[in-house]
Design a binder for these strands. Structure first.
Lengths: 159, 159
DNA sequence: ATAAAGAGGACTAAAATGGTCCTATATGGA
DNA sequence: TCCATATAGGACCATTTTAGTCCTCTTTAT
């Protein structure tokens, strides 16, 4: 279902919490309590976000985590990539893909375009957006169809 | 990684095969040979696509599968939904979600918007697009940012 | 020194996924 | 009519992925 993993989901919620109070460090236990999830799980998630460069950590007493950039400079793509690795719909979406069906497949290139479009979309959603409590006011119909369809209709007739 | 399942991947390839030769029925064995995948797996995939209303099946000798609509009326969303169920990034993206963290979460509504945007994007990609052998010529940068960002920046300052 | 924190990784349990196979049913043709 | 060829619909198992826990080590403020 193109679903995010639970960990990614947690990550978003946790990042949003931090973003709403960005001026001091937050510990794993504090966040676990606020988000009502078990401490070890929250800890793990925070470590991944930190490794992914989205959080700065401070060890020792009075330690914790702080955003490494402003909420508007952290994107949904960043968060997803930190937990799940590079975003792509198919094996062959990333460079290292070694799909031996490539010749019979015939759709690889097109899926890659679609992946790219989704990535671009997620690049446009920032932590600042996610953290705001009232829903984002995106237009229900994005003008994507008008971008992809005309060229596509013609392209179909190319061969 | 927002990845499609392998089955969905197969489904797309198989649908594309059929779309390229839409005028007669294709059997599971024929498609399996063409796509170089095991017959049982292809059979399973075809059954799902048929149950999902994307293929019409004819039983018995000279049976097989035909597209139930024209390739330009079958979308990537349709294919994904037929194999993986409703498209949504999070549990709470669909109506039946029963996430008990909703109050502490604070990002649910926003993820739902993002899901919706992705769905809209995938609605705009048809089987006709996927089936064409030369890559879709989507602009690398879709103008999504210019749609989502301005309103979002203001929305942030609302509270 | 000590208590409070994160780093890193090993480990287990549970769930999803991929893949196979079997039986039943429908259809066309000899 | 009978047979070969298809799909329909599940049951089933193996594998992988995911979620979650735990332990030990290092860092840091008091």
């Amino acid at each position: 279902m193109l679903k995010l993993s639970k960990l990614t989901d947690y990550a978003a919620v946790i990042m949003a919490q931090i973003a709403r109070d960005p001026d001091h460090a937050h510990t794993a236990s504090e966040l676990a309590a606020r988000v009502k999830l078990p401490h070890p799980t929250v800890g793990k998630t925070l470590k991944m976000l930190s490794k992914g460069g989205l959080l700065e950590s401070r060890r020792g007493s009075h330690g914790g985590y702080v955003l490494s950039r402003s909420p508007s400079d952290i994107t949904a793509s960043d968060i997803i990539a930190a937990i799940e690795g590079p975003i792509g719909m198919t094996e062959c979406s990333h460079a290292d893909g070694d799909c031996e069906l490539l010749d019979t497949c015939g759709v690889a290139g097109n899926w890659q375009r679609v992946s790219q479009a989704i990535r671009t979309l997620l690049d446009g959603v920032t932590l600042a957006h996610l953290a705001q409590s009232s829903p984002l006011k995106l237009p229900v119909q994005l003008p994507i169809q008008s971008v992809t369809l005309p060229s596509a209709g013609e392209a179909l007739r190319e061969h």
